[in-house]
Simulated scan of single mutants.
Amino acid sequence: MLVDLVAGPDGRTFTAHPGGGPANAAIAVARLGGRAVLSTTFGDDLFGALVRAHLEESDVDTRMLPSTGATSVAFAATDEHGVARYDFRVSWDVQSIPLVDGAAFLHTGSLAAAVAPSAVEAAMRAARAAGTPVSLDPNIRPTLAGRPEVARARFERQAGLADVLKVSEEDLEWLYPGTDPVSRAESLLILGPRLVVLTRGPRGALAVTTALAVERPAPAVDVVDTVGAGDAFTAGLLSVLARREVPLGRLDETTLGDALAVATTVGAITCSRAGADSPRADELGAVAALLDRGPASG
């Protein structure tokens, strides 16, 4: 959980938006009608009050972890296409992360996985041991990732602890320069995930398992910025997978296609707004019905 300070056109005026990868995902899940529990930390300061109010407004069940730090801040500036670049001031000294009983997924990634990998990886192992599927979005931020070879080793170790792995073309280009992103995404299944999802910006997304490959386009929108769009995408994906209750080892083309349709729509709508402002279920149009479809039969 952090605050994104997004630069205006003049490059000198900043607007504060609550953010942080897993926090954005938790908020998006809750706005889509699911229950989201966020284990996190932020300071007893002005930005902390801002993010706490934001979480409460979206009905996120927030569990505070022991910490002595201030609220983390990310300075963001966008290019002419609305794509953000970041500069971070991060305080995240978490030592352990307790699991939540009955969760459909444990989702993690982004700064948490880079700054406190030992605590995050211990939680991932504990979740898998308890039978809870693990979702990972590395959301690589070069300014915090460290040397590429170190970041690549960390990513591959964490990917091996994940059941669902969501990566962007930008992630893969930074981790594996010059390689074809589709081929690389398919090869990541070797590390252990049962589902790998590649986001491709305006070209939509591709989901691959050892048995299936499913693509869906992204809805066309006027992009304001891309802040939080990948997190919103992940929330849409996990929301459908959780509600369908299809074991990840038996995913079918319909379930994956519906999950991608919801995910790309949620991500696109977020791109049409300033900051990580994901939509509610009643803003999804026709794809909202895919959220309400119950568990698969058979």
Rank of each mutant, 00 (worst) to 15 (best):
S39M: 09
G236W: 01
V60I: 10
L165S: 01
V120S: 12
W174N: 13
R31F: 05
T132I: 15
A276C: 07
P247Y: 05
I27F: 05
A274E: 13
S118L: 10
P98C: 04
R216E: 12
Y176Q: 11
D222V: 13
A205D: 10
E149G: 07
H81C: 06
A289L: 03
D93C: 10
G298A: 13
S135F: 00
P247L: 05
K166R: 14
H17A: 02
P148K: 09
A162R: 05
A259F: 03
L161M: 11
A259D: 03
S187Y: 02
G11S: 12
G11W: 02
L241T: 00
A268H: 01
Q158E: 15
E186W: 00
R273S: 04
A288H: 04
T234E: 08
A242P: 01
E121D: 14
G228M: 05
I97F: 06
S183P: 00
C271M: 07
D171R: 10
D87M: 09
G267S: 08
T265G: 00
R244W: 05
R52E: 13
A213V: 06
H17S: 04
V94D: 06
R273D: 06
G48E: 09
R280D: 08
G102F: 04
P148H: 08
L198Y: 01
L191P: 12
T108W: 03
